[in-house]
């Protein structure tokens, strides 16, 4: 079936609205349990209270800036290390399996160590997010650079490019799509860990608020806060997509 003329965004919102409406109805009819799932209308209704009483805006800003700091660190350090491993082959051979192992490890369990090093502070939260997101960025940067088509490299060689021209004009732009796959993965891990550690050490922005509200059994508030967590990730990923298109136009 074609929904000609209706913008996709409208269809998206309509779908979400419909699903929420159905959930609301099932809850009201008693087919779903209100002690487990709050009424969507109650979640919407709690927004005002959260802003007024729970400093939601400040918390949003705090988590947002932690997320931004971790994202920048993950991207800059991850891409640089990936480039280093690409340039120094012996390093890549020695460390690549370890980096891959770290990527699969539940780094969040190491939070006590970070608490000892950085104290119960935003630094711990950012560091946890950073460590969790680093491995995929390194691996994908390395993969992207190793996978640059031989013909593009040969074009550069045939024009006698300097090594730095060869890297910045050909290898790096050619690798950008793969590098961004890594950055996207890395940021997912970083965000999950960031919110998780806020929750665990009961410090900071949205993660702490979710912890508080859950302790008070304020289900509507918990779900409402989760909506704002999603908002943070949507904003970060939209910005990331913009950046990719700016850095690497033309698909």
């Amino acid at each position: 079936m074609r929904l000609a003329g209706i913008p996709p965004l409208a269809i998206g919102f309509a779908t979400v609205g419909l699903v929420l409406g159905v959930v609301e109805l099932l809850l009201l009819l008693g087919l779903l349990n209100q002690f487990v799932i709050p009424l969507p209308s109650a979640v919407l209704g709690s927004f005002g209270r959260l802003f007024a009483e729970e400093q939601l805006l400040e918390r949003l800003m705090m988590t947002g800036s932690e997320a931004l700091a971790a994202s920048v660190l993950v991207s800059v350090v991850g891409i640089s290390l990936g480039v280093l491993l690409y340039k120094v082959r012996i390093l890549a051979l020695a460390t690549e399996p370890w980096v891959a192992a770290v990527a699969a490890a539940p780094v969040v369990l190491a939070y006590p160590l970070f608490l000892v090093i950085f104290g119960r502070s935003a630094a711990t939260i950012i560091a946890m997010g950073f460590v969790a997101g680093l491995a995929p960025v390194i691996l994908k940067t390395l993969e992207g650079l190793k996978g640059v088509r031989k013909s593009l490299i040969n074009v550069g060689l045939s024009y006698n490019l300097t090594p730095s021209q060869q890297f910045w004009k050909i290898e790096f732009p050619a690798a950008i799509p793969t590098i961004f796959v890594g950055v996207r993965l890395g940021l997912v891990f970083a965000l999950i860990n960031l919110i998780g550690v806020e929750f665990l050490i009961n410090f900071g922005g949205l993660g702490q608020l979710i912890n508080d509200l859950a302790e008070r059994y304020d289900l509507a508030g918990v779900f409402a806060t989760i909506v704002f967590v999603i908002l943070v990730s949507v904003v970060i990923f939209a910005a990331l997509e913009r950046m990719e298109r700016w850095l690497r136009p033309g698909r």
Partner: peptide
């Protein structure tokens, strides 16, 4: 090595996809 008088056209796709 590559000589400045020689221009090469390759068999494989060799345009840069990110450049107009």
């Amino acid at each position: 090595g590559p000589h400045p008088s020689i221009g090469m056209v390759f068999q494989e796709e060799s345009t840069f996809p990110w450049r107009t």
